[in-house]
Amino acid sequence: MANNFLLSLSLIMATILGLFIGTVSSSSSADWNILNQKWRFKVEKTTNDLKTYCESWRINVEVNNIRGFSVVPQECVDHVKKYMTSSQYKADSERTVEEVRLYLSSGCCTLKGDGKDSWIFDIDETLLSTIPYFKNHGFGGEKVNSSSLEAWMMESKAPALDHKLELFHEIKNRGIKIFLISSRKEFLRSSTVDNLVNVGYHGWTRLIMRGLDDEIMAARKYHSKVRQQLVDEGYRIWGILSDQWSTSYGLPIPNRTFKLPNSIYYIA
């Protein structure tokens, strides 16, 4: 009888042990199975984390916390590309334009009608788009090749940013003098003028580009120097519209600065 009891007890223990081992084995194999729901959740969570990181990086570029970057982080290139070619980028830019219109209609600017009321526009990613170039050159994931970009600019094929074209003419029609201040080099003047006119821009007061003495100067110092020259000539600068923070750094300070989105490149 004792032998039968021990045999039964052994069978029970073996069954329990077998069930335990099976459970552990099943759980372990499930953790390593790529088709397992838990594993898919981990992959999805990682993807979401990357999207969140890249959007955070882009926003911090726009608010000028991240400065002086030479390339977009490789893991974020596709994210930046999607944004800069999306309806959201267009909507964000159009909202900036609407804010300019609200500012100008709010009684902000007492125009004296003496020909000295002025507005400053940047060119690239403000009036003209270089996105067609960057679509074929890494979209911010490669360090900008100045020679290649300038060769493309010489073709005068950059499209107008339509909502900026309308704003340009609205400001001009208010009797405000328009100054185009660009970080483009002086040798690009002819192709730049051709490009601007071909897509509908005309009637600006002056196009100012980097001369030989300005090429080694930081963009922020160059723009500050040009603004000072305009103020010395008696111009009142009511506002600046640009995609780069460097266009409004330093003195003299314009009455208002409006920043357009651009997370492809940074000009210091």
Rank of each mutant, 00 (worst) to 15 (best):
2 A>N: 07
5 F>Q: 07
5 F>I: 13
8 S>W: 06
10 S>L: 09
11 L>P: 05
11 L>T: 03
12 I>Y: 01
12 I>W: 02
15 T>K: 02
18 G>N: 00
18 G>A: 00
23 T>R: 13
24 V>N: 04
24 V>I: 14
24 V>W: 05
29 S>N: 14
31 D>G: 15
32 W>H: 12
33 N>G: 04
37 Q>P: 14
41 F>K: 11
41 F>N: 10
45 K>L: 15
48 N>P: 02
52 T>Q: 12
57 W>M: 12
59 I>E: 15
59 I>C: 08
61 V>Q: 14
62 E>N: 09
65 N>H: 12
66 I>E: 07
66 I>R: 10
70 S>K: 08
74 Q>V: 04
75 E>F: 04
76 C>F: 10
76 C>L: 14
81 K>D: 09
89 Y>H: 09
89 Y>L: 10
92 D>S: 05
93 S>A: 12
95 R>H: 11
99 E>Y: 09
103 Y>K: 11
104 L>V: 15
112 K>C: 13
112 K>P: 11
116 K>N: 02
118 S>C: 06
118 S>W: 01
123 I>H: 05
123 I>A: 07
124 D>F: 12
124 D>M: 08
129 S>T: 12
133 Y>C: 12
134 F>C: 01
135 K>Y: 01
135 K>A: 02
137 H>F: 14
137 H>D: 10
150 E>V: 14
151 A>V: 00
160 A>Q: 08
161 L>I: 13
164 K>M: 09
165 L>K: 09
166 E>H: 08
169 H>D: 12
169 H>Q: 10
170 E>R: 08
170 E>D: 09
170 E>N: 04
171 I>V: 13
172 K>H: 13
172 K>L: 15
174 R>F: 02
175 G>N: 09
177 K>H: 05
177 K>W: 03
179 F>A: 06
179 F>T: 03
183 S>V: 15
185 K>T: 13
185 K>A: 10
188 L>R: 00
200 G>K: 00
200 G>C: 03
202 H>R: 00
204 W>F: 08
206 R>G: 01
206 R>C: 03
208 I>W: 00
210 R>P: 05
210 R>S: 03
215 E>Q: 09
217 M>C: 01
220 R>C: 01
229 Q>W: 01
230 L>Y: 02
232 D>A: 11
233 E>W: 02
240 I>K: 07
249 Y>D: 04
250 G>Y: 06
252 P>A: 10
253 I>L: 05
254 P>Y: 06
255 N>E: 05
255 N>Y: 08
256 R>Y: 00
258 F>V: 06
259 K>V: 06
262 N>D: 08
263 S>F: 13
263 S>I: 15
266 Y>H: 11
